[in-house]
Simulated scan of single mutants.
Amino acid sequence: MNSNEVEIVLYGAQTLCPSCVNLPSSKETFEWLEAAIARKFPEQPFKMTYVDIYQPTGESEKLSFAQRVIDEDMFYPVVVIKEKIVGEGNPRLKTVFAELEKYGYKAM
């Protein structure tokens, strides 16, 4: 069982990504992802952070990555774990879970 808390950062916006019209909003994706991770890795600490790309707050690296999402026209929401992009537009649980397992998370 993992005892180190990993931060999962979801960069998104209130408006839908122009290419993601039929997908859930960034906030809905954030809530869905948080619930799915908690179910897959119960009693293993993780931190979910939401960053609005148009009104970012927080550390300078989050501010600069939010700007990068805009500048590079990434499909958002963008899911980042330890500076690695693990999902863009419509994140896949399998990819997110696999990345967490690299940090010692064990499925229950």
Rank of each mutant, 00 (worst) to 15 (best):
R92T: 02
K62Q: 15
A13C: 11
A107I: 11
V21F: 06
D73L: 14
Y76W: 15
I85K: 12
M48G: 07
I81A: 05
F75V: 14
V79M: 01
Y103M: 09
P24I: 03
E34N: 11
W32G: 06
K27W: 10
E31H: 13
E88L: 10
N22A: 11
K47M: 13
D73I: 08
P45A: 09
D71R: 15
A66W: 02
A66D: 02
Y105I: 03
V21W: 06
L16C: 00
S25G: 07
N22Q: 10
V51S: 00
A98W: 11
F46E: 02
L93V: 02
N2A: 07
K94W: 10
L100T: 01
V51F: 01
C20T: 07
D73N: 14
K106I: 14
T57A: 14
V78L: 07
S3R: 06
S64D: 10
S25I: 04
F97P: 02
K102W: 05
N90E: 01
T95G: 04
T95R: 12
N4R: 12
S19D: 10
Y105A: 04
K102I: 06
M74P: 10
P42K: 02
E59G: 04
C17Q: 01
E88H: 02
P56Q: 01
M74H: 13
I8K: 08
K40S: 11
A38W: 04
G12K: 02
K47F: 15
V96S: 12
E61F: 03
E31W: 06
I70L: 07
E101G: 10
Y11P: 03
Y76I: 03
L63V: 14
I70R: 03
Y105M: 05
K106H: 11
W32P: 08
K47Q: 15
Q14R: 13
L23A: 08
K106S: 14
V80Q: 00
L93R: 10
P42D: 03
T29H: 09
Q44V: 11
Y105R: 02
C17L: 04
R68Q: 15
E99L: 14
E88V: 05
M1Y: 05
A98E: 12
I85R: 10
M74L: 14
F65G: 00
P56R: 05
Y76Q: 04
Q14V: 13
V6T: 06
T49L: 13
K84H: 14
D52G: 00
D71L: 12
N22G: 11
S25W: 00
T49C: 06
V9F: 08
E61D: 10
Y103F: 13
K102S: 09
W32R: 14
I8H: 05
Y11L: 08
P77D: 07
V51N: 01
Q67W: 02
